[in-house]
Design a protein around this nucleic acid. Structure first.
Length: 321
DNA sequence: CATTCGTGAAGACGAAT
DNA sequence: ATTCGATTTCACGAATG
């Protein structure tokens, strides 16, 4: 993250061109992923390793203009940035534990007992409400799992929003906090086009795959989350990188996959399996021997699935020319 | 010997009732 | 909540190099 700030100190006329040209370029970190805009276009994100490059996308200046001091006073809005990752968006009141006033002087004994009462009530208000406590735990889970998966912050924020919507819609009743949190994260990954399979989610969650899937389906239905089927192409860069194949295969597998997707033979099949098969087929066509088992391992599918998919893809690609 | 291929039984999942 | 159809997985043996 140390290189993040070196770009954003000054703004030049050529900023548009440089920023746009970075879209689609190769990630400097893993050197295999591609940089894409997150959904809110505030971040450039590597679609493979999840590296976030906050590069001049954000205008830190005020959106208003002021011509004298009083206008400035009136219009400026100051405070810590809010974040969806805190259950109260970071806007809580804090009461110091020291018995000093704002000037650092020790406060009177009769005030001290009053302070004790206020502290106690502040704690109760802050986390005492069932819903709030619920949220707090869920958000920490989302953060933990996001770190384990290595997904960018934008995904965490989206996951948090989804969870809070689920909470508002009373969808967690009878379901575990952990389960809904994991399902929210899964949905967020898909919405942000940084897909992680249910298996990968299950690895970092305390809930099993089945429950995650069930909960996900439930909340996406109830909240009317529009979810396009996962594009198998999105898995390609990550798998290729894990297999350490060269760019020839990356390119060919992408073309194969696009051809097969157009023909529609992939629908209903697992996207990871399709991606894996395309890599295997590409490697064969390039004369490089990669075993089905190797591809199957990184894609977390079985060799049988790869066989089935890759047979279909051979048929489509060959007739296509 | 390792890898690939084909098969049927069994489990999991989504859709429909 | 159950049933049904399609898909994936598992386990096995055969073929290939």
């Amino acid at each position: 993250m140390s290189n993040m700030n070196t770009y954003s100190s000054t703004r030049h006329q050529d900023e548009e061109t440089t920023e746009e040209s970075r879209e689609g370029s190769t990630c400097g970190e893993c050197e295999s992923g591609t940089l894409v805009h997150s959904s809110d276009r505030h971040e450039l994100v590597c679609n493979e390793c999840g590296l976030v490059i906050e590069d001049e996308s954000i205008d830190y200046g005020p959106e208003w203009r002021a011509f004298n001091h009083s206008e400035r006073q009136e219009r400026s809005r100051v405070g810590a940035p809010t974040t969806e990752l805190m259950h109260d968006r970071g806007l809580t009141t804090k009461i110091d534990w020291r018995d000093k006033d704002a000037n650092g002087r020790t406060i009177q004994p009769e005030q001290r007992s009053r302070m004790q009462r206020l502290r106690k009530w502040q704690q109760r208000i802050r986390t005492g409400d069932a819903g709030e406590r619920n949220l707090k735990q869920a958000l920490s889970e989302i953060s933990r799992m996001s770190s384990a998966l290595g997904v960018p912050h934008s995904v965490r924020e989206v996951a948090s929003v989804i969870y809070q919507k689920a909470l508002d819609a009373d969808l967690i009743r009878g379901r575990s906090i952990e389960g809904v949190a994991t399902a929210s994260l899964y949905a967020a990954c898909r919405q942000e086009n940084i897909p992680r399979s249910l298996d990968e989610l299950a690895e970092v969650s305390r809930v099993d795959r089945k429950e995650i899937g069930r909960t996900y389906r439930h909340i996406s239905q109830e909240l009317d989350l529009v979810m396009k089927p996962v594009d198998p192409t999105q898995y390609l860069p990550r798998f290729c990188s894990q297999l350490d194949v060269d760019s020839e295969i990356r390119q060919l597998s992408k073309e194969i996959l696009e051809t097969t997707v157009e023909s529609g033979v992939h629908s209903g099949k697992s996207p990871t399996g399709c991606a894996a098969a395309a890599i295997y087929l590409a490697a064969q066509r390039c004369g490089q021997e990669i075993t089905q088992r190797d591809v199957a391992d990184v894609a977390q599918v079985t060799v049988v699935t790869i066989r089935n998919r890759y047979q279909e893809q051979v048929a489509v690609v060959d007739e296509d020319g």
